[in-house]
């Protein structure tokens, strides 16, 4: 079966006075219909740019996107603006991090949803408005009729994010791109929104790319995970496999940095020393090497490639050495 979306060797660079800076560097992945893919990484890892590049929404005249992004077999890079526009909000929809600022403050929720419906269908104004109310109901907004007549700032953060999701779902997208959809929300509201996202594949047949910095969010939501560091995917696997047997030292560091709610309280958290490299001062070899406790000569000349079949990692640590090395990090 062909994947829904296939990205091969995607690079996003920015023209600056110091030359071209690569923010996303050789990212490849694919996603099947109805699959939830989680992309995890810290700020500056390139995870948001990767997703914005899919719909050409980076919005910076100095950005240069190369590689291949195929959606249902159609190449999107270099595609005509008109074709991309029809995909945006239609077959591929997007939701953003901050529901507080993601909606235009001067239009009602209902008007903003029906606007999108009317771009992509030939429903009448009235029918689009009715569909908007249906959608608000479907995402669990209480009193959807009244909510449709309200302005964004009259709703709470969680309600707004539901409205944003309703809008994204309005044209039954095959793929939903969610950029940190719960980061700005409280935990109890985050739990509601994650439950909603998990249900999308049943209710709307949508595949989801979920971007987050929170390993807990992917663990509970995604089928498959890709971990990004400094513009590259360093590890990708099925969610269960990745958390059961993480391969990359950066993934270990991330896991060790998270304070746990149960189990023994560790006196100190595992930390990753230092900071991610600035994009224009990335080492020649593995970008994680300056912070890694297991550096070897072969890490330094060029970044290691993703190896493996189902569970891929860009690291030279061999299978038989892995468990010992990981225990060194996570048990410390």
């Amino acid at each position: 079966m062909n994947p829904l979306l296939e990205i091969v060797d995607l690079a996003v660079s920015f023209r600056t006075s110091n030359g071209l800076i690569r923010a996303v560097d050789g990212v490849s992945f694919s996603i099947a219909e109805r699959e939830i893919l989680g992309i995890v990484g810290e700020s500056g890892s390139g995870k948001s740019l990767t997703v914005l590049a899919i719909l050409d929404l980076i919005g910076d005249p100095n950005a240069v996107v190369t590689g291949s992004i195929r959606f249902r077999g159609i190449e999107l890079i270099g595609q005509k603006p008109e074709t991309l526009r029809r995909l945006r909000g239609g077959a591929i929809a997007m939701i953003f991090q901050d529901p507080m600022t993601a909606l235009t403050p001067v239009f009602t929720i209902g008007a903003q949803i029906s606007e999108q419906i009317r771009i992509h269908t030939d429903l009448s104004r009235h029918a689009a408005q009715a569909r908007a109310v249906e959608l608000l109901d479907a995402v669990g907004l209480p009193d959807p009729h009244r909510a449709a007549a309200r302005y964004p700032q009259e709703l709470s953060g969680g309600q707004r994010q539901r409205a944003v999701i309703a809008m994204a779902l309005s044209c039954n997208p095959a793929l939903l791109l969610a950029d940190e959809p719960t980061t700005a929300l409280d935990v109890t509201v985050q739990a509601q929104i994650l439950e909603l996202i998990r249900k999308l594949r049943d209710d709307f047949n949508s595949a989801v790319i979920l971007i987050t910095h929170n390993l807990g969010v992917v663990a509970e939501t995604a089928d498959r995970v890709a971990v990004m560091y400094s513009g590259r995917i360093v590890e990708t696997a099925d969610t269960g496999a990745l958390f059961a047997d993480p391969h990359h030292p950066y993934t270990w560091g991330l896991l060790g940095s998270m304070p746990a709610l149960d189990g023994i309280r560790r006196p100190r958290l595992t930390t990753i020393p230092g900071l991610p490299p600035a994009l224009d001062r990335r080492p020649q070899g593995c970008a994680f090497s300056p912070r890694c406790g297991f550096v070897r000569p072969e890490c330094l000349p060029a970044p290691p490639c993703l190896t493996g079949t189902m569970h891929q990692a860009a690291c030279v640590i061999a299978d038989h050495e892995r468990a010992a090395a990981r225990n060194q990090v996570l048990a410390a």
Binding site: V187, T188, Q190, A191, Q192, L194, E195, N214, L215, G216, V217, A219, E220, T221, T239, G240, F243, A244, L255, M258, A260, L261
Partner: peptide, 19 residues
């Protein structure tokens, strides 16, 4: 119970209360 846990195995067993 709302805090997501970075362990899919444990997450499945957990009894989740969604307010």
């Amino acid at each position: 119970s709302a805090v997501p846990v970075a362990d899919p195995a444990r997450a499945k067993q957990r009894h989740r209360i969604v307010l």
